[in-house]
Every structure is written in C-alpha cells, then in structure tokens.
Design a protein around this nucleic acid. Structure first.
Length: 564
RNA sequence: CGGGGCGUGGCGCAGCCUGGUAGCGCACUGGCAUGGGGGGCCAGGGGUCGUUGGUUCAAAUCCAAUCGCCCCGACCA
C-alpha cells in the first residue's frame, strides 16, 4: 500500500488524554481515534491489525469445530427478562425503546440469544454437541471507560458457546476452548497466563481467564513460582508467611498516641505480622468485627461471599458499638460476631484493648475470643502457595479472554432442552467463551514496544514490510523504489510503501513508530553501490543486501521472524 | 456514583491569579534552499477561548449553572 494514498495520521506528540503506553502508541501510530469516552474509530492500519487477529481466531475456532454465525446487537427485553438478567444487570446495559414503545436493549453478551436459538433448533441428543461463535460488536455502558481500547463501551469480541448433553461434554468443549485460546494468544505473540477466575455474573463453577501481563492491566493475578497454581487475586488463596512468634502472657500495655498498625509496631518494635488488625464493619445483619493479621489486607469480595455486602463503620458507630476510638479496637471481650482470617489460628498477638491508648499483648485467638474462621485476606507478594511450598508473586495483567462453564443456567429458563436416547427431556449444558480483539492488539503493543514506537509481532502486524525511499525527489531513487515495490507485491509480501515526499528523518521516525517487522531503505547507497538496507525492527539489526536479492532476503528474514 | 484535574486554530501548550488588540511550538498552503534520523529561510490561511447565563463601560480572564474529556476509587459478561 502506498502511504500517499492511505490514511495513516501519525502524531509527533503524545495525545494529552492518553495514559497507557498502548493508548499513546495506538493513537500516535494512527491506528485509532477516539470519538467519545470509550468509543473509538478504527483507522485503516488498526483495521488491518484487527483483521489479522480475526483471521487467527477464526482459524482456531473452526479447528475445534466452531461454526460461525452472527447474532443481533439489538435485543428485545423479553429475552433478558426470561433469564432474569434484565433486572440483575443494572446500568451496564444500554436500554432503549423502539417506535412501538417496545423495550429493547443492546447486547452485551449473547447467552440469551444462543439459548433462544438452541431452544428452537436443538431437539435431540443427536444434534449435540455444537459450538457456535461470532466475531461481533458488544455494547456495555461502562461506568468508567479507560486506557484507550482496553476498556471501551463498544468493542469487538469473539464469543463462542458450546452446547452439550451433559457435564462431560461441556468439560470436553471447555478443554478444547482452553487449548484453542492458548494457540490464539501464542500465535498473536502474547505472553499470557491461564488463571482461575471468579465466574461473576455468568454463574457456574470455577472459570478461567487468559491474562496478558502488562502495567496497563486492570486485574492482578497470583502466580506460584514452583507449581502451576495461578489465580485472579479476586479468588486467589494463600498461606501468609509464618512470623516468629513470642509466647507473651496476656497483659495490657499502654500505647500512647499509637493507633495504626504501623504506629503500634514502631512503638513496640515488633513485626506487623504479630498484630491483629480489627475492622468494624456494618453488614445488613448489623455490626461485625473482622480480624486480619496486621500485615494483611481485607479481601472485600471474599468477605462479601460469607456475610453479604459490608462497609466499614463510621467513627461514631465504632464509639457506639465498642465504646472506644478507632485506634484501639480489639476482639477481646467484644460482644459482636467476629470473623477472623485463617492466618490467625496460630500464634499470640498484639491487639487493641478496646480502651483508648492501650493494647493487649499476648492475645491468643480461639482462647481469648471465639471467632468464625475464614479466608478473608488478600493474597500478597511473597505469600506461600496454597498447594505447595512455593511462593506467590502478584502480577498486573490485561484480561484478553475468558472461558465459563455455564451449565444449565440459561438453558433452563429459556427452555433449551433435548431428548435423550431414552426419550427423557434434559436441559442443554452450555459453556461460553470470550476474547476481546482490541485487547489483544493493545496487549501486544504493551508487551512489544520501545521508546521509538510499536514492535509488532509479525502475525498481527498491519504490514510485514516498510519500504522507505529516502528521497522521493531523486528520480532514479524513486524508480528503483517503485520497481522494488512491485516486486515485493508480486512476491506476496505485504508492503507499506512510504512514497511521501518527506524528509528522511520524518520517515524513519514514522517507520519506527509504526513498528512493522522489517524495513527496506532505498537511499544513496542503493544508487551508488546497488545495495539496500534491510533492518529488523525488533533487533534493530541492519544488513546491506544487493538490490536484486532484496525480495528473497526479505522473505527469508520474515519467515524467520514469523517463527520466532 | 464519590474524589481530583482539564476544556484556548488539526495536535501539544501559554495567557486567567491582578478584566482592556488572542499568543507560542508543531502541523497545514505557496515559494526558496537542502536531502540517510521529526533540520533551515520567506510569505500565508485557520480560533464564537466547551456551552449558557450573570457581574462589568469592557470577560479567555471574575461568578453561577451545564456539557464534555482524563485520572483515582466504587463498579465491571
């Protein structure tokens, strides 16, 4: 493609509103433009990247037996009312009325439509299993769109749905998807982890998310350095490191002015892991004292699963329930329900004395107070793995895909059933599997760039080769470049031909910014010695190649890059 | 939804505090020179200062409301 006939609006300066590296680079390289918060136009270069990703996904989905379909974006409300999600989902769904005042919504996912279709078209066990997928736009009224194309209100997603007779069939399709996803992300050049995840509003058993490590990510995962344990911190469990305990006797000690864990530890010269952090929470059932070790953080979601939604108490509520200020709360002698983290089962601790300016030393959980035990701490860096002796590290990641076992959650209300060999009616067992296309592109940019710009993995690069004549006003040079361009095209090498009458420096900067895997420079050396420069973006290695060998050398290098 | 920040040519910004001719860099148009890393010279075009209302002789500047965008948090198939 000729640059002069393309829309490739590169930017010298960073857009003011961009924060994430991928956001800055995708805008600067002319891949996307923002229309409104969380709504983007995909420009020609970005479109080519999306199509590359698209093709890879399609190949891998077809390979596991997926059949491509297209489902509507506009849905009647009844569909969602049948499964109950019309009311459970809330403001994240775009809702509207048609001219006949019928309530409609914009599809944020398609379990309902799939179940609807299955209810009509699947009758017998002979019709199963099926995998249906689409690559389609989804709409979600995100509370906070952010980080460029990483969290948008309108986005293209590959979503597939498996239909099976039973759990065993679902398990098989789940595994097939897991394998397909690994191939897809690997082919797209991403490094990633498949981790255990919270099924959230999808329902069902433990699910998996595919996470690409990146600073710009919104999620965190815990990874074991010894075994294969890996999980979203939303549900990750750990055994916190064991501190060196002291066999203190129970005694009250004055801690003037020391309220926070940090202050108390400094005052007493002890490890925060030897203290109990006491939090007064207000649940729908009233006040609750939650206990953690001083070095741990409360995991609100874990707690919410046990006691429902909880908020921290206001200062006056603390005074009402405990007759003490926030700095000296403790579990001993308290007449409130207490929930304590498992890590407190062993050892003796320092805790608030429920008396301003005082703490208790030698508090023995289970003896001096009786809590309900539970895992309510957040996994932190260095905690011990729940399955082995390894230690966990926390990594920030971008969620690029996820897979869910839905079971019969949608087939039952939608009456998607089949008849077994014995003639009995059973609900179809479903799975659902998503991949965010733009997130793959953004994650790839996050993982592959340098100070100068993007370094595309060749599988999803918008073009394979950047042909750059240094001076278009030199007629001879122009002719050589033109000739080389048509040879490259004939050779089937996707080439972006920078035929602009720009200064060499401008073109070089743009080439680095766009980040195509390979660059051929036609310059004075070509005129003088018949050599072109062949430069690999990733390694920055440049080689001089005789002009007649340029195409074959490029082909060789590109195939090497494609396999690396 | 809570907290914070920002809206001034296409992009990035200054001017606002202390009201009085709207400015800089880049980009763009025409020309000159140059031609291997965002270089130089000359001449141009382009802005209801987000919007609305108020204060004032006079508002980009002060006040109020409103809209938009970004960041932190809450939320997130």
């Amino acid at each position: 493609m000729r640059w002069t006939r393309s829309l490739i609006p590169t930017l010298k300066e960073e857009p003011a509103e961009a924060e994430a590296v991928s956001h800055k680079l995708m805008v600067r390289a002319g891949l996307v433009r923002q229309l409104a918060a969380g709504i983007y136009v995909t420009l020609p270069l970005g479109q080519r990247v999306m199509e590359k990703i698209n093709a890879i996904i399609r190949e891998e989905m077809n390979r596991i037996g997926g059949q491509e379909i297209t489902m509507p974006v506009l849905h009647p409300a009844e569909l969602w009312q049948q499964t109950g999600r019309w009311t459970t989902i809330g403001e994240e769904m775009f809702r509207l009325y048609d001219r006949g005042k019928r309530q409609m919504c914009l599809g944020m996912t398609h379990e309902e439509v799939v179940a609807w279709l299955a209810a009509r078209e699947i009758r017998s066990y002979r019709d199963l299993p099926q995998i249906w997928y689409q690559i389609q736009t989804k709409l979600r009224d995100e509370a906070r769109p952010k980080s460029g194309v990483l969290r948008t209100r309108e986005f293209v997603m590959k979503d597939s749905y498996s239909l099976d007779r039973d759990e065993a069939g679902l398990e098989k399709n789940y595994e097939l998807h897991k394998e397909a996803y690994c191939r897809i992300f690997t082919r797209c050049g991403l490094s990633f982890h498949a981790v255990e995840s919270d099924p959230g509003m999808m329902g069902g058993a433990v699910a998996h998310e595919f996470m690409a490590p990146s600073e710009a990510g919104e999620d965190e995962i815990a990874l074991c350095d010894r075994c294969s344990y890996s999980a979203n911190v939303e549900l990750a469990v750990s055994r916190p490191r064991r501190p060196t305990f002291t066999t203190w006797d129970l005694e009250e000690i004055a801690t003037p002015g020391a309220g926070t864990i940090e202050e108390v530890c400094r005052f007493l010269q002890i490890d925060p892991a030897l203290t109990i952090k006491s939090l007064l929470l207000i649940t729908t059932d009233g006040p609750l004292l939650a206990l953690l070790r001083g070095d741990q953080q409360l995991h609100e979601k874990k707690l919410a699963k046990l006691v429902g939604e909880a908020r921290s108490a206001h200062r006056d509520e603390i005074l009402t329930y405990l007759r003490v200020g926030p700095g000296s709360i403790g579990p001993v002698g308290v007449d409130l329900p207490i929930i304590a983290d498992e890590s407190l089962r062993e050892g003796r601790y320092v805790a608030g004395a429920n008396k301003d300016g005082f703490h208790l030393r030698g508090v023995w959980p289970g003896i001096h107070f009786q809590p309900r035990w539970a895992d309510i701490h957040q996994v932190s860096n260095g905690d011990q793995c729940p399955h082995c002796e390894g230690s966990l590290r926390i990594e920030r990641v971008i969620e690029v895909g996820n897979i869910f076992r839905l079971g019969t959650k949608y087939s039952v209300p939608m009456k998607a059933v089949y008849l077994s060999e014995a003639g009995d009616e059973y609900p179809i067992v479903m799975g659902s599997y998503g991949i965010g296309l733009a997130r793959i592109a953004a994650a790839a940019v996050e993982q592959h760039h340098d100070d100068l710009g993007i370094i595309w993995p060749s599988a999803i690069a918008p073009f394979q080769l950047h042909l750059l004549p240094v001076n278009m006003r030199d007629q001879k040079m122009g002719e050589l470049a033109e000739a080389l361009y048509s040879q490259l095209q004939q050779a089937g090498i996707e080439t972006l031909y920078d035929d602009r009458d720009e200064r060499a420096g401008v073109k070089f900067k743009d080439a680095d910014l766009l980040g195509l895997p390979l660059r051929i420079t036609v310059g004075t050396r070509t005129l003088r010695e018949g050599m072109v420069d062949l430069k690999t973006r990733k390694t920055a290695k440049e080689a001089q190649i005789p002009l007649p060998e340029a195409v074959s050398a490029a082909r060789t290098l590109l195939s090497r890059l494609a396999n690396s």
